[in-house]
């Protein structure tokens, strides 16, 4: 019998490994974005000021390569751990995209437009999180490959046509912008400015999430954890939302 957390309690969501992964990835990406954008937009006064401040273009590239190496190792580690967990430990791959995610997307859109009464019923990771996860993971793989070609162009030209080097450059610079915008717009909104979590979604830093948020955002996972039918969690969610509605009504 599983331990049953009750209202007001918090639930462990991330292991220390995931917290470390987030910290390392966040740090490396900040460094990569700063040193990368300064090279991409090299004609801007601000870029030139930044490059000179750091100590020159060679230093910038050295830092960029070092941070890049960190991301490469981290990505490799992540894939290996995922492989180990799924294949050896037979763990449930929570990030896999299923047909349900597309249905959830539509459900949620219906909910946003007021066609549906309640938001989609999601599992451990909702479709937004899965989209971001896969965008970042594939992005980092693309960045790793193109980055390595740019870092070691003569080595790459040994087994690739020479044209692949400018292709890698185009890919690297465009994908970098994509990742940057994805994080700056989507991730920062969902983790900081979204009314659900404002001022900050702390779960990736503390590793814990409140049971209340589990009820709202991950009812399927909560039901599985507590060994109760999902309808019970959904009932709880409806009650809380009506409560909210009532409060809203009273306030008016």
């Amino acid at each position: 019998m599983k331990q049953q957390p009750r209202r007001g309690e918090s639930i462990r969501r991330f292991s220390p490994l995931r917290l470390t992964e987030h910290w390392v990835n966040a740090g490396a990406i900040v460094v990569l974005v700063l040193t990368g954008l300064a090279q991409k937009f090299h004609t801007l006064e601000a870029s030139q000021w930044f490059v000179l401040r750091v100590g020159g273009i060679d230093t910038i590239r050295l830092i960029h390569h070092a941070a890049g190496a960190v991301v490469i190792l981290l990505t490799l580690q992540h894939i290996l751990v995922a492989f180990f967990l799924v294949v050896v430990r037979k763990a449930q791959p929570g990030m896999l995209i299923s047909r349900k995610d597309f249905a959830d997307t539509l459900d949620n859109l219906r909910y946003y437009f007021g066609v549906r009464q309640s938001p989609a019923v999601c599992d451990r990771y909702d479709y937004k999180q899965k989209f971001e996860y896969w965008a970042i993971l594939t992005g980092q793989i693309l960045m790793t490959v193109s980055g390595l070609i740019l870092w070691f162009p003569t080595w790459a030209a040994r087994f690739l046509p020479g044209e692949f080097i400018p292709v890698a450059k185009a890919l690297h610079t465009n994908e970098a912008l994509l990742i940057f915008l994805l994080i700056a717009v989507w991730h920062i909104y969902n983790a900081i400015f979204s009314p659900d979590v404002f001022p900050l979604d702390t779960s990736i830093f503390t590793g814990r999430i409140s049971r209340e948020r589990m009820v709202h955002e991950h009812p399927l996972e909560l039901a599985r954890m507590e060994g109760i039918p999902v309808e019970e969690v959904l009932k709880e969610r409806r009650e809380e939302m009506h409560l909210l509605d009532a409060q809203g009504f009273l306030q008016h």
């Binding site: 030209a157 040994r158 046509p161 400018p166």
Partner: peptide
């Protein structure tokens, strides 16, 4: 090596004819 100089697009802006993949 032999392939390496092709990395340079010979002053052409990438187009469908000159550097289609880019």
């Amino acid at each position: 090596t032999e392939n390496f100089p092709d990395a340079w697009l010979s002053h052409y802006e990438p187009t469908l004819e000159k550097a289609p993949v880019v």
